[in-house]
């Protein structure tokens, strides 16, 4: 398949996901509700935290925990819904596997970016999280979100046909995401505490490398997962 046809098919899958989401709002509602409830519960439970050297690390850990579990709630939906509504066979027969993967990956990325903005804003407002280095903070969120989406989209395709999908998604994704989470939490803590680009570049580069490795691996493996 030529690149232009692949791009056209990818765009069609992405637009179809967007259109379906705008009409049903299932994923967006579920994720937004989860994010708001989590941050509000944390802010009520912890109350105002005392300023200490560990505070940025606590905020970073809370931020990424909420993002991780919201991702578990939302990112598998793109494949699970195809199986539940039995549209997967029609898609399998018509669409090139790479276009399906890329279109759904782009949709998941958009969804997670929206979620990340929401969670970050809520954390700043409700947890009084101070962002002392905004540039590195945004870069870490973006590269972390890229890695999270790249790491989980293939797993979503794997678990979509399983009976106990929710638990399986978390069980399979978590070991893969540990390196990402450790790096993202430590990097975000650095950015929150005011560390500049020079020291934040190492975690950002690690997250980029992670995202690229997961993306390339997933791209190679997806056709086998999707068609078997």
């Amino acid at each position: 398949m030529s690149k232009s046809l692949l791009w056209r098919a990818t765009k069609a899958v992405f637009v179809r996901e967007l259109r379906s989401e705008f009409r049903s709002r299932q994923a967006l509602n579920a994720v937004a509700l989860f994010a708001v409830c989590s941050i509000v519960a944390v802010s009520l439970g912890l109350g105002p935290l005392n300023r200490s050297a560990e505070l940025p690390l606590v905020h970073a850990a809370l931020l990424w925990i909420v993002l991780l579990f919201a991702a578990f709630t939302a990112l598998a939906r793109v494949f699970v819904v195809e199986e539940e509504q039995r549209t997967a066979a029609a898609l399998r027969l018509a669409a090139p596997p790479h276009a399906v993967y890329l279109g759904k990956l782009l949709f998941n990325l958009l969804l997670l970016c929206a979620l990340t903005v929401l969670v970050a804003v809520l954390a700043i407002v409700l947890l009084r999280m101070q962002v002392r280095s905004p540039g590195p903070f945004v870069a870490l969120l973006v590269t972390g979100a890229l890695g999270l989406v790249a790491g989980t989209t293939l797993i979503a395709a794997i678990i979509a046909r399983a009976a106990s999908r929710g638990a399986l998604f978390a069980v399979l994704s978590f070991p893969i995401l540990i390196p990402l989470l450790v790096t993202a939490v430590r990097g975000t803590a650095l950015a929150l505490s005011g560390t500049g680009w020079d020291r934040c570049m190492a975690p950002i580069q690690t997250l980029i490398a992670y995202a690229v490795a997961m993306f390339v691996t997933s791209l190679f493996l997806f056709a086998y997962v999707w068609e078997d």
């Binding site: 179809r16 009409r23 509504q85 039995r86 549209t87 066979a89 029609a90």
Partner: peptide, 9 residues
């Protein structure tokens, strides 16, 4: 009969 198309489209 078990081929389903997108109901929301």
């Amino acid at each position: 009969p078990d081929l389903m198309l997108y109901r929301e489209l």
